[in-house]
Structures are given as structure tokens and as C-alpha cells.
Amino acid sequence: MELPDRLRDYVCRCEEIPRSAVSAAIQEGNLTLNDVKRRTRAGMGVCQGIFCLRTVAEMIEAEGGVDADSLEPMTARPPARLVTLGSLAQLNPEE
């Protein structure tokens, strides 16, 4: 069965980052989740890395020789869910 080239082996679905880009970043010496994220955008999407963080951690372990159990999680930043600017605009900091 033919697999079209465009159906690449993505690591990060949200930002369309292929496995090859993550591997290249690890080879360049990016050996933390945050460094790989900054270099490739993997984990920078709407899902906050929840679907690619493990894969990136396993790739850093396999290809970069760093124990995955020792990796710090990606920096967690709000919002934890996609929220509209409209609903946030109602927050009154003076309240």
C-alpha cells in the first residue's frame, strides 16, 4: 500500500513536526524537553505537549543517551485548556 509522502511520521500532531526534525534537534545537542520544544516547536501546540512529550522523552533517551526518568517536564504554562479571549476578558484584576 502506498503511503503518500505528506502523511509523514509526525511526532507532534499540532505543529506538524516530523520525527526527523526531532532527531536532528537531539543530534544538535538539545537534550531537554524544553530545548527540543524551543528548537522544533514540538509540544508548543494547543495540546501543551500531552500527546508528544513521552515520545520526545523516549527519543532523547534513545538518541541522546539521557535517562528519560531524569528529564524535567516541559514548563507548564496556562491555559491548561483552549479558552476564548472573550471569556478571559471578563476577568477583572481589580476585583
Binding site: L3, L7, R13, F51, T55
Partner: peptide, 10 residues
């Protein structure tokens, strides 16, 4: 948990 494989975005 979702480990990637070719075509997993279809």
C-alpha cells in the same frame, strides 16, 4: 498515551 506511527494523523 499515543505513540506516533506513519499515518496516525489520518
Amino acid at each position: 498515551i499515543a505513540a506516533p506511527f506513519p499515518g496516525w494523523t489520518l
